[in-house]
């Protein structure tokens, strides 16, 4: 197994790209800058607590905004950009022939890329969090490490998930152009289209059930299906897992959900969170987003002629 050699090479290579320097600067400005803005200028002394930024969720039913949600969106874009060309570009230039002329298996290549490029994004991200931490300490802000540290870890996992998604696309795509389009399309789906699709599917199921004469689905079931589908989106999985660190699972599961959903589901959750909405289930989804795209990509790539 020589994936370490590949990972090291990937890291050395990617860490010098201007794109990554830009991404690092961006994270420093975004995470560190947000902390500076919030705790250096905006918030009064008695609100100086890290959770007021990192656990910032505004939920007005129709309009919702959260700092973790925004961070996830940006991080997803940067992580995808770092990995979507990792195999197609090497195939197009021919550098993959150098890597595979050496005793590296295709497994080593894919695993090394996931870890190497993943490490690059995580390092950029951690630099941002470090800047924020410096600001927190510098402004005398209270930090609850019990939620801050796990949140950083969750964010790193999300970064790996999107690196894996990009890598999977890169392994399957026929050309770099195809990989670019697929990545943009997928980002659009995660960012915008996932929600209406997730809401549409239970309606469709309901319609089918009615047509089939089984009878309409219960309202609670419909909302649960829709909500669960929404949490299959890694951006939402991350958001709700982060919210759980600050507000506990019952409230966290309703973060960024619509008024309709909240009215129907809140009573159910108050009696206990169903297993498929538990923190463990959400964590499983997030980890699956790290493993599955790379595995699928590898499975296709392994069979292909270069």
């Amino acid at each position: 197994m020589t994936w370490q050699a590949v990972a090291r090479k990937e890291f050395d290579d990617a860490v010098r790209s201007r794109w990554l320097h830009g991404a690092t600067a961006f994270f420093v400005l975004f995470v560190g800058g947000a902390a500076l803005l919030a705790f250096g200028f905006l918030l009064p002394q008695d609100l100086k607590d890290a959770s007021n930024l990192f656990g910032f969720f505004v939920d007005l039913g129709i309009f919702s905004l959260s700092f973790p949600g925004l961070l996830a969106l940006v991080l997803g874009f940067i992580a995808l950009s770092t990995s979507y060309g990792s195999i197609t570009q090497e195939r197009e230039t021919g550098s993959i022939k150098l890597a595979l002329s050496l005793p590296n298996s295709r497994t080593d290549l894919v695993a090394g890329k996931l870890l190497g490029r993943g490490a690059v994004v995580v390092v950029a991200l951690l630099t941002g969090f470090l800047a924020a931490f410096v600001v927190l300490v510098g402004t005398g802000t209270a930090v609850s490490y019990g939620s801050f540290v796990p949140m950083v870890a969750l964010t790193a996992l999300l970064a790996l998930a999107f690196v894996s998604i990009g890598l999977g696309i890169s392994a399957v795509a026929d050309s770099n152009r195809e990989a670019t389009l697929a990545t943009l399309g997928l980002f659009l789906i995660f960012g915008i289209l996932w929600k209406p699709i997730a809401e549409g599917i239970p309606k469709l199921l309901n319609y089918v059930a009615e047509e089939a004469g089984v009878g309409a689905l219960e309202n609670v079931t419909r909302v649960q299906i829709g909500l669960f589908l929404k949490y299959l989106n890694p951006l939402r999985t991350y958001e709700t897992l982060t919210a759980q660190l600050y507000y506990g699972p019952a409230r966290a599961r309703l973060v960024s959900s619509t008024v309709g959903e909240q009215l129907v589901i809140a009573p159910v959750f108050e009696q206990g969170i169903p297993p498929y909405f538990s923190g463990a289930a959400m964590m499983t989804i997030l980890l699956a987003w790290i493993a599955v795209p790379t595995l699928v990509g590898y499975y296709v790539f392994e069979k292909q002629d270069l």
């Binding site: 020589t2 050699a5 090291r8 050395d12 550098s95 150098l98 050496l102 590296n104």
Partner: peptide
């Protein structure tokens, strides 16, 4: 084939030795 643009010549050979 093509080389890795951002790696030095030595790093390429080190990658080979590593692999």
């Amino acid at each position: 084939f093509d080389v890795y643009d951002r790696l030095t010549g030595r790093e390429h050979v080190e990658f080979a030795a590593d692999s």
